[in-house]
Design a protein around this nucleic acid. Structure first.
Lengths: 344, 344
DNA sequence: CTGTTAGCGCATTCAG
DNA sequence: CTGAATGCGCTAACAG
């Protein structure tokens, strides 16, 4: 039986000890250890106790790598834009929590990707044979969309509801509607010269739709649409810069809708610096309802979207599919609220 | 040779097609495919080209699960506190970027863990046999520290530099020094009644050390230490609440040092609401130098620590160890700066 | 430079 | 309820 050189036969050297060793110590077959771990009810209580004890004593943690070879793995993979300043962190929290609750684990690739770099990232993730993937609808390359579709794993895009058909499933909100609603809201409060500031739009469905919603509202309102808009980086500095530029170019501008709270907050700081009253001199609206929005001076009118919930729902959709639930909706549209506060 | 029922022998059905199949199509042995993938130089250019072509054509993505069985895996695992409002997001960006640059992938568990839940999370991660782990020094349970040490994988704790010896390696900053320095800085600017506000300290080395640094400075300064401190949740609301409580309890307080920019920003908003001038009525200092700090009105005096860099360095330490670099420092202390701005 | 052999640590069968 | 055999997809280690 002792066909191998004993390796500190004592205890704890995890990584070297497997079900086989545990089985030996508990006096059962490896298979029984496996069962005790993954389906305890199928093992007699007494046996199970012996096995668990041996596992405990050895500090054994079964290898999910190995188990993923036969049964399907329990990885959810996601690629997300940079975590700071964009509300993505909340989404990731949602995903992480929902994964955690279901004994899945989150494989994360984060970054500011070009389409090519994104392809690399997605392929890297696929290598881990995730049970499902969550993407941010930055998937531009058609070839990658095909690759994803062909992988067979369920996929959720967190994205704009309108527009292009999803690769598989979709969770999101109608950015068009939100922006339309906010613009109409500003008009209803009496503002007539409403500007729009966005973070870089290129390749981002959601931002494109927000912009489109803004323009659609202007049209509905029969407001002149004379280019009171600008694109800036997603920083507070970007926000204050945008305020400076737009008020300079369009002295009669009386409200600005920012596509991100971060920008709006930056703009409000710039107003303070200039001694401008908000909203008397100019009204400011944001997007996202981040923590600070309700505490800011003045408090910030903004669009509340359920980012945390989006993350959770995305994972839940994946799990539902994996569990073979029938009649699963392909598209889940979460609601939104216009939160009217002092800044308008 | 055709011992199995052909399964859509055509193309693209990823997950079903492996090195073996690619080898067949390219007319080489599976091993050659493996080599072409992991060590291209060891394969003749012509052969390599044929193999790559077959891979391309089939849309084949090799399974890292399987490769992790023999060679060591390329996972870096980390458990982090909630991503929002804490500067952790920047650290995660750093980790993610450094992983990405080195073809490692980040397995993330995020949450607000109790010691027991943390143990569960760490075990879950260990199941994936990560090449290395990064922890936030919330590892309380001695049993878990032992488990980690026994795993044999390199470990970096991002933590307080002073104090308890690390499980393995340590990357961080001396929170004691930073807090001491900021307190002295405030004193140097003439403030004499300096309060301190922290987010929940229990079980967090870093926060403990900040508090200790604050007290040490008071002692050096021979300032009365009469409990001008409070603990609040890490939200802007927490910050404004802290301001209200401390100024109420200690009417003569003239400066408050917040252990987080988020809190300080909340407090400044509360000052605006009350019509208090900052720093004339009360000086406010933060910790972290988040994006908004330099744009806030008034701009925020704060402690700048290199959070992104901490994340990167943590991964780099891991990789250095994995590459067998000799003379690797166990402890890496990153610098900090006191950024003096208008709020003090 | 390329191929062959063997097996990583589990879990899916199928028998007891 | 438990055990034995077999192989997941890939890659060390060793030939050739």
């Amino acid at each position: 039986m002792s066909d191998k050189p004993p390796q500190k036969s004592g205890r704890k050297s995890l990584g070297k000890i497997g079900v086989r060793e545990i089985a030996k110590r508990a006096g059962v077959a490896p298979m029984t250890v496996s069962r005790a771990l993954s389906n305890p009810d199928s093992v007699a209580p007494a046996t199970r106790a012996r096995v668990m004890e041996a596992i405990e004593a050895a500090g054994f943690v079964p290898s999910r790598i190995a188990s993923s070879m036969k049964s399907s793995g329990r990885i959810i993979a996601t690629v997300v834009p940079p975590l700071i300043n964009s509300g993505i962190a909340e989404q990731v929290q949602g995903m992480s929590d929902e994964c955690h609750d279901n004994d899945y684990i989150l494989l994360l690739v984060q970054g500011d990707f070009t389409p090519d770099a994104e392809e690399t990232a997605i392929r890297a993730l696929q290598g881990w044979r995730p049970a499902g993937m969550i993407l941010q609808s930055f998937v531009q390359k058609e070839t990658v969309r095909e690759l994803l579709a062909a992988s067979g794993a369920p996929i959720v895009e967190i994205s704009e509801i309108k527009g292009r058909a999803p690769i598989d499933m979709l969770v999101g909100v109608s950015n068009f509607e939100t922006a339309y609603a906010m613009t109409m809201h500003l008009a209803a409060k009496g503002y007539k010269r409403i500007g729009f500031v966005s973070t870089p739009i290129h390749g981002n469905d959601r931002l494109q739709q927000r912009r489109t919603g803004y323009h659609a509202a202007l049209e509905t309102l029969r407001f002149a649409d004379d280019g009171m808009e600008i694109e800036v980086p997603i920083t507070t500095l970007g926000g204050s810069h945008a305020l400076a530029v737009l008020t300079d170019r369009h002295p009669d501008i009386d409200a600005i809708f920012f596509s991100s709270d971060t920008l709006a907050i930056g703009a409000i700081q710039e107003c303070h610096r200039r001694g401008w009253k908000v909203p008397q001199r100019i009204a400011i609206a944001g997007y996202g309802d981040m923590d600070l929005a309700s505490q800011l001076y003045p408090t910030l009118t903004t669009v509340r979207v359920q980012r945390y919930e989006m993350g959770r729902r995305a994972v839940r959709q994946l799990l539902a599919r994996l569990n073979g639930e029938a009649h699963l909706p392909n598209i889940v549209s979460l609601g939104f609220e216009i939160v009217d506060r002092e800044s308008t």
